[in-house]
Design a protein around this nucleic acid. Structure first.
Length: 290
DNA sequence: ATTGGTTCCTGCTGGC
DNA sequence: TGCCAGCAGGAACCAA
């Protein structure tokens, strides 16, 4: 599932093939995505030049030359398939919903089995007030995110810290996987009340969030040749998850525990446990995380 | 104002 | 072997 690091990788890959290119053909094969496509979507995008592609939270932002921004979210199962001019005649795949053909013959398909993904068009001017972005917290990799900023956002919150990390108003773009991973690195229990994550704990958590996302982006960048896999799929890569999806496996230790283990030679080894919070799985170590 | 529950969708998995 | 219930989950939206 695409999380922030994958979206970042997808945006970089799309920038390579789409920035500066005119979209000579746009096809909307299915308008009924998570949210309905705006009226005349294809007609409003076709003929426009892509000036710049960037990411905000888990959104892809394609700035067009008429002042509009093409906003895309991959949801859970969304992919961007890139076909060069030689591969443009390749057959459609099931769930190819939106197609973009550039003026050098590259075709990009938005493919999404579950249709949790969605696209929208909005003026670049005032984009921050768009319903998707209004109220969104700071970018975890930006300068506006820090221990004190996180502590302030968590102050007074009665929800578990795991749920708070998933709240996009606290910090933008952290999903289930990286919330688990960051809490593990920071040695903080997912059940701990958010308001008790202050001072040094908030500092450690902010550092962990930043580190886990940075590591994942680096892994994606280094494991993908030109960000395009052989099948044309953009932006997925293998992760080195320490707890996520590893129920019952031995814990390798939080960052602090790992540092201590370097001296003592001992790693944690306790089994990774799973619990359900806000109707989704949390993986954690009961020994390392308090 | 917060917080928790519901909803969208379909591919995959595990149990029988 | 085949069937199907249950699960996965981002985040907007709604209800309490």
């Amino acid at each position: 599932m695409p999380e922030l690091p994958e979206v970042e990788t997808v945006c970089r890959g799309l920038a390579r093939v789409m920035e500066g290119r005119r979209l000579v053909r746009v096809e909307a094969r299915r308008p009924d995505l998570r949210f309905p496509l705006p009226e005349d979507f294809a007609a409003r995008v076709q003929g426009r030049r892509v000036e710049r592609i960037r990411r905000r939270a888990k959104y892809m932002l394609l700035h067009l030359d008429d002042g509009q921004v093409l906003i895309g979210h991959l949801g859970m199962s969304g992919r961007m398939r890139v076909l060069d001019a030689a591969g443009a005649a390749a057959p459609l795949e099931t769930h190819d919903h939106l197609g973009f053909v550039t003026d050098d013959g590259t075709t990009v398909w938005f493919n999404d089995a579950r249709r949790f993904g969605y696209f929208d068009l909005a003026p670049a001017d005032g984009l921050d007030s768009h319903r998707f972005f209004a109220g969104l917290g700071p970018e975890p990799l930006g300068n506006a995110f820090s221990g004190p900023v996180l502590a302030a956002a968590l102050n007074g919150k009665k929800t578990p810290i795991k749920a708070a990390l998933l709240d996009q108003r606290v910090v933008a773009g952290v999903g289930n996987i990286y919330a688990c991973e960051a809490l593990h690195r920071a040695g903080i229990s997912p059940r701990r009340l958010a308001r008790t994550v202050q001072g040094g704990r908030a500092e450690a958590l902010a550092t962990a969030v930043r580190a886990v996302l940075t590591d994942a982006i680096a892994a994606g960048g280094s494991s993908l040749r030109d960000y395009v896999q052989p099948d044309g799929e953009l932006g997925y890569f293998q992760h080195a998850w320490r707890v996520y999806g590893r129920e019952g496996e031995a814990c390798g230790g939080s960052d602090a525990a790992r540092a201590a283990a370097a001296a003592s030679g001992a790693v944690c080894g306790a089994p990774v446990r799973r619990l359900v919070q806000s109707a989704r799985s949390t993986f954690y170590c009961g020994r390392c995380q308090r």
